[in-house]
Amino acid sequence: RELEAFAERFKQRRIKLGVTQADVGAALANLKIPGVGSLSQSTICRFESLTLSHNNMIALKPVLQAWLEEAE
């Protein structure tokens, strides 16, 4: 499924970029996305391991996609 594929791609790109899960969480606050502050390292970890609820995964995907586009 698309969500699982994105989570895997996100993790691979993050590692290639040399960015930690905690760095991603902190950097999200800098994107100034309305309603989104920083996220914890454990939230990023749970996203990558697909252990968040489906609704949370869907909500976080565009936020993490925005970070990925900014980071690349």
Results as ranks from 00 to 15, higher is better:
residue 18 G to W: 00
residue 7 A to F: 02
residue 50 L to T: 10
residue 5 A to G: 12
residue 47 F to A: 01
residue 71 A to G: 07
residue 62 P to W: 02
residue 53 S to P: 14
residue 34 P to G: 05
residue 21 Q to G: 04
residue 46 R to L: 08
residue 29 A to D: 06
residue 16 K to A: 14
residue 24 V to P: 01
residue 32 K to L: 09
residue 26 A to V: 11
residue 58 I to M: 15
residue 32 K to C: 11
residue 9 R to V: 13
residue 45 C to Y: 13
residue 58 I to L: 15
residue 34 P to L: 04
residue 23 D to I: 01
residue 27 A to K: 09
residue 68 L to H: 01
residue 17 L to I: 04
residue 7 A to N: 00
residue 10 F to G: 00
residue 20 T to N: 05
residue 70 E to T: 11
residue 26 A to N: 12
residue 68 L to K: 00
residue 66 A to P: 02
residue 6 F to E: 01
residue 51 T to K: 15
residue 39 L to G: 00
residue 67 W to R: 05
residue 72 E to D: 10
residue 16 K to G: 09
residue 34 P to V: 06
residue 46 R to D: 15
residue 16 K to M: 13
residue 60 L to Q: 04
residue 40 S to P: 08
residue 13 R to I: 14
residue 14 R to D: 03
residue 38 S to R: 12
residue 14 R to T: 00
residue 63 V to S: 08
residue 64 L to Y: 05
residue 49 S to V: 01
residue 23 D to H: 13
residue 68 L to N: 00
residue 26 A to P: 03
residue 12 Q to C: 05
residue 32 K to D: 11
residue 14 R to F: 00
residue 28 L to D: 01
residue 48 E to G: 11
residue 1 R to V: 09
residue 11 K to E: 00
residue 69 E to H: 05
residue 56 N to I: 08
residue 70 E to P: 03
residue 8 E to S: 12
residue 3 L to V: 15
residue 20 T to K: 08
residue 26 A to E: 12
residue 25 G to K: 05
residue 8 E to I: 13
residue 7 A to C: 09
residue 7 A to R: 02
residue 69 E to C: 13
residue 24 V to H: 00
residue 64 L to V: 04
residue 35 G to S: 07
residue 38 S to Y: 11
residue 33 I to N: 04
residue 29 A to I: 06
residue 66 A to L: 12
residue 4 E to S: 07
residue 38 S to Q: 14
residue 43 T to C: 05
residue 21 Q to R: 05
residue 65 Q to D: 11
residue 33 I to P: 09
residue 1 R to G: 13
residue 36 V to H: 11
residue 4 E to F: 14
residue 37 G to C: 02
residue 33 I to Q: 04
residue 22 A to P: 03
residue 6 F to Q: 01
residue 67 W to Q: 00
residue 29 A to E: 13
residue 65 Q to C: 10
residue 12 Q to N: 15
residue 40 S to M: 05
residue 30 N to S: 08
residue 46 R to A: 14
residue 11 K to T: 06
residue 30 N to A: 12
residue 4 E to D: 11
residue 43 T to R: 02
residue 58 I to Y: 09
residue 72 E to L: 04
residue 7 A to W: 01
residue 66 A to V: 04
residue 37 G to Y: 14
residue 72 E to V: 06
residue 71 A to L: 07
residue 19 V to K: 15
residue 21 Q to L: 07
residue 63 V to E: 03
residue 24 V to I: 09
residue 39 L to A: 12
residue 38 S to K: 14
residue 58 I to A: 06
residue 10 F to S: 10
residue 10 F to M: 00
residue 46 R to M: 08
residue 69 E to V: 12
residue 57 M to I: 05
residue 17 L to S: 01
residue 18 G to R: 06
residue 38 S to N: 14
residue 57 M to L: 12
residue 21 Q to Y: 09
residue 24 V to C: 07
residue 33 I to V: 03
residue 13 R to H: 15
residue 63 V to W: 13
residue 39 L to R: 02
residue 63 V to F: 08
residue 39 L to D: 05
residue 27 A to V: 09
residue 12 Q to H: 05
residue 11 K to V: 08
residue 26 A to W: 08
residue 34 P to I: 04
residue 14 R to A: 00
residue 70 E to L: 05
residue 43 T to M: 12
residue 70 E to S: 12
residue 43 T to L: 13
residue 56 N to T: 02
residue 8 E to V: 12
residue 57 M to G: 02
residue 45 C to N: 13
residue 67 W to Y: 10
residue 63 V to K: 04
residue 8 E to L: 13
residue 1 R to F: 09
residue 10 F to C: 02
residue 58 I to P: 00
residue 9 R to I: 08
residue 44 I to T: 10
residue 47 F to W: 03
residue 19 V to I: 14
residue 46 R to Y: 10
residue 14 R to C: 00
residue 52 L to M: 03
residue 57 M to R: 03
residue 33 I to M: 05
residue 27 A to I: 08
residue 13 R to P: 00
residue 9 R to T: 14
residue 1 R to E: 10
residue 45 C to Q: 13
residue 9 R to N: 13
residue 31 L to E: 15
residue 63 V to M: 11
residue 66 A to G: 13
residue 36 V to T: 05
